[in-house]
Computed example of a mutant assay.
Amino acid sequence: MIYDFILVGHGLAGSILAQTLVAHNFTVLVIDEPKANSASNVAAGLMNPLAGKRFAKSWLADVLVPFATNFYQALEQDRQIKLFHAKPILKLFSSVEEQNNWMGKSAGQPYGDFIKAVYTSLPSSKIIKQEQGGILIDKGGYVHVSLLLENLQQIRIEQKELVTDRFDFNYLTLTDSGVQYKEWQAQNIIFCEGFQAALNPYFSWLPFSLNKGEVLIIKTTEQLATEQVYNKGVYVVPQPDGAFKVGATYNWRTVDEMPTEAGKEELFNKIKDILKVPFTVVDHKAGIRPAVRDRRPLIGIHPKHERIKIFNGMGSKGVMMAPYLAHHFVQVLKGAEELLPEINILRYITLYREHY
């Protein structure tokens, strides 16, 4: 059998792309070496239409958010599981100064219907430090990423479309009609490797800005409200078992997958700036984000080898970006759309020429 696509990597980006390709009647073979501490598994799966310290509207949020919501809800219905938890995000102000600064900056921002309410103050709470008020962000929520990946993996196994193995470039051969990897043939190969793409011999010229993120799983002595996600320096996201995932750090200096005491201490101190009640840390994880210099994904076709493609670089926004961008990329592969220039790897063609 000659597949339409071999996909390398089955994290958040790869699994959603594989599902989308199959939905459009393409044949796929996924090659993946599962890792418990992959960035996809470590992430809290937060979907936040407003982001950054300035809380500006995220790029393409008006398109990405509803598309992603529909994608996860359709998969929920198909698999009869709960994956996406639509929750408002309460961005708490740290001070009156921050409140005033935000109110001034927000006047000219096109937030649309993503801001549900702005509170100059909130009632005193025995659990949350919320007296300075905050912004209630609508259309957000979180995806149970590990459960999502587990179900998409199960689909690929059921369809006999998954090979559990570490990809070895020594066995990849380009042919006149496509590619061959070991005993498998395909017309194309798409790399969805996450941070490991920085070591990919075909795409190492791309300007990845890898960074390590650490998260804590905590339990509180008094039950924290679960009808919303809290954000104040870090996010506090409810988990199915009653715990909360807190994160994340950003470390560009030491890019490995080992949790650190420094990361734990940073998160610990930020949690104490949100919670008034004691908490215990029950787990501590770290993963590497495949972020990019200009904070836009890296998607497209290799400048020299048209059979080789990449779908990567979504950083901490994969939950929000991957469903629509997978759909868009499939339309590009079908010849129905032109690849968005903001995500096209050819925006870095000068780096490729310098490299080769």
Rank of each mutant, 00 (worst) to 15 (best):
A36L: 10
G11I: 01
K82D: 15
G14L: 03
L12A: 03
A86R: 12
D78C: 07
L29R: 15
G9F: 01
A18V: 02
F5G: 00
H24I: 04
H24M: 11
L75C: 05
I89H: 13
Q73V: 10
P66K: 05
T20E: 10
F67Q: 06
V42Y: 05
D4R: 01
F93S: 12
A43I: 07
A61V: 02
N48M: 00
G9S: 00
K91G: 09
D32H: 14
V22K: 12
W59R: 03
I6Y: 01
S95N: 13
A13F: 02
A51N: 13
L21N: 03
L17K: 10
L90F: 15
S94R: 10
Q19R: 12
N37Y: 10
D4Q: 00
T20H: 07
F26N: 10
V30A: 08
K87L: 15
K91P: 12
K53T: 07
N100T: 15
L7K: 00
L92C: 14
R79W: 10
T27C: 06
S38D: 11
V63A: 10
G9D: 01
E33L: 14
L50A: 06
N100Y: 05
A13P: 02
V65S: 05
I6L: 01
A56S: 11
F84E: 08
S58T: 07
A13V: 01
T20N: 07
S58W: 00
F71R: 09
F93D: 13
E97A: 14
G11E: 02
E97T: 15
A39H: 08
V63R: 09
D4E: 00
Q80Y: 09
L90R: 12
K82A: 15
N70I: 01
A68R: 05
K35T: 08
I6T: 00
A18R: 04
P34D: 10
E76N: 06
R54T: 10
V63P: 04
L7P: 00
P34V: 12
L7S: 02
S15H: 06
D62Q: 07
V42P: 10
N100Q: 08
I31L: 09
L92S: 12
E97M: 13
Q73T: 11
H10G: 02
F5E: 00
W59I: 01
Q99K: 11
E76G: 09
L90I: 13
E33Q: 15
A18H: 04
Q77M: 07
T20Y: 06
E76P: 07
L92R: 06
Y72S: 08
Q73C: 08
L50Q: 04
L21I: 05
H24F: 06
L60Y: 01
A43V: 06
K53F: 03
V22R: 12
E97G: 12
F26H: 09
E33W: 04
L29Y: 07
V22P: 03
L46F: 04
